[in-house]
Simulated scan of single mutants.
Amino acid sequence: MVRRNGVRWVWALLSACLAACHSASAPLGQDAYVWQRQWNSSVVTALGQSADLVRDWRVLAAQTDARGQLRPVATDRAALAATHRPVILVFRIEGQLVQWDEDALLAQIQALRDSWRGYPLAGIEIDHDCGTARLPAYAHFLGRLRQALGGLQLSITALPAWLSSGDLDKVIAQADEVILQVHAVQSPRAGLFDDALARVWIDRFAARSSKPFRVALPNYGTRVAWDSDGRVVAVQSESPVLVGGMEASELAASPAKVATLLSALRSDRPKGLSGIVWFRLPTPQDERAWSLPTWRAVMTGLPLTNRLAALFQDGAVPGMVDVILRNDGDVDIGLPHGIQLPVGCTVADGVNGYALSSRNGQLFLQRSQDGWLRAHRQRAVGWARCGTGKALPVIAP
């Protein structure tokens, strides 16, 4: 009897070890958020061109309004079905809502889920960026929702700020999986994405959570405007916003920095990390998202070869030249921090996100806002009046 129990114990330990090894070596599955509120031919094209690399689509199904009522988003279910990929319905509850009617919200979520009856759903996701003081109430809501969903998987998003709260464990306990968001979680003045800080948050969450989790990575840019008091008055991302501000800046996630983090996660995988979720599905019409070739290159770990050049081009005014950045590569490249002008240039200025700067008597065009240059595109970034030499501007670190 003792021997038989000992054999069982050895087999149980071996099975656990094999499962852990398999989990650690399994590739990171990659999902994508389909966040478009208007489904046109561009979205349908992007779905078809990306499905081979995507595990699940996480589709924005509804979003709460100022009164806490869910407003459905019309989707093209036929286009989704044609990709032969599972769908997870995402319900976004605005983080600024102080409270809501739990019964009404639960009923609305269930009704929308039932409207997809017949479509093979892989789960439901709740996206709610509430403050830490609201976490106990949020955990209560999730507990009720999980019961109502039966066996359907429940995913939730989580913020790094929640790591400081003892109530995070109550929220995690109600979910089957968690998606840790590491982009656009700080003040816009701090930028959109910091790969080193993101890794710190991921490791902290891995040490804290007993549930499998995914990491939401960015492949987009956004324009943020502030008023004279420093308050954010507009955020323009995949759709234009007409509200202006006293100050505005373009923020962008660098493909190179995101690729660096992704590579590190693959080579030194945190405990419990099961995959990546990309925000958001890039489309041909989305000028603030990476191009599809760039996204695919980062997803698959291909090298992001830099083929960026700074050139002079005769301007419309005699004696003036336009400073042109040209990307001859196949992937998008983050805009360089600076462009050093030749010594013979005595007058110059920057445009399109660049401004004139000087250091030790040397003129530079200094980047004033984030961004990238699409593959096989060019951008005018300034002008200059220079001597007759053939020297070209130099991209400065």
Rank of each mutant, 00 (worst) to 15 (best):
S187A: 13
E287I: 14
L197C: 09
W100G: 05
I124T: 13
E125A: 10
A26F: 04
V34M: 05
W35H: 13
T283L: 02
G48H: 09
R296A: 02
R266P: 05
S267H: 14
L60M: 10
R4A: 12
R85L: 09
F213T: 02
K211T: 01
Y33N: 06
V215W: 03
A148P: 12
V241L: 08
V224T: 01
P27F: 02
G244H: 07
R367C: 03
W57E: 09
Q313W: 01
L363V: 00
R208A: 11
H140T: 14
A256G: 10
L47W: 12
G166L: 08
R359G: 06
Y220F: 12
A66D: 14
L53H: 13
M299C: 10
G344D: 02
A104T: 07
A264R: 14
A26R: 11
L341G: 01
V178G: 05
G329Q: 05
P293C: 09
N40K: 05
T305D: 14
D129F: 15
P397Y: 12
T45C: 03
L53V: 15
R67Q: 15
I339W: 00
G319R: 04
S263A: 15
A248E: 05
A79E: 08
P284H: 09
P282K: 08
R77T: 14
R4K: 08
D314E: 08
A158Y: 06
L80D: 09
V59Q: 04
S237D: 10
Q186Y: 07
Q110K: 12
A316D: 07
A79K: 08
V7G: 06
A252C: 11
V87Y: 08
F205A: 02
L97K: 03
P318T: 03
L311M: 05
L60H: 10
G329L: 05
R71A: 07
Q69L: 13
D314C: 04
A12R: 15
I156S: 11
L152Y: 10
H376S: 11
A207W: 02
L373Y: 01
P160G: 06
Q147L: 12
S267L: 14
F213N: 00
V10H: 12
D322C: 01
P270T: 05
T75D: 13
V241Q: 13
P72I: 07
D101L: 06
N40R: 15
A216F: 10
G143N: 08
L262W: 11
A196L: 14
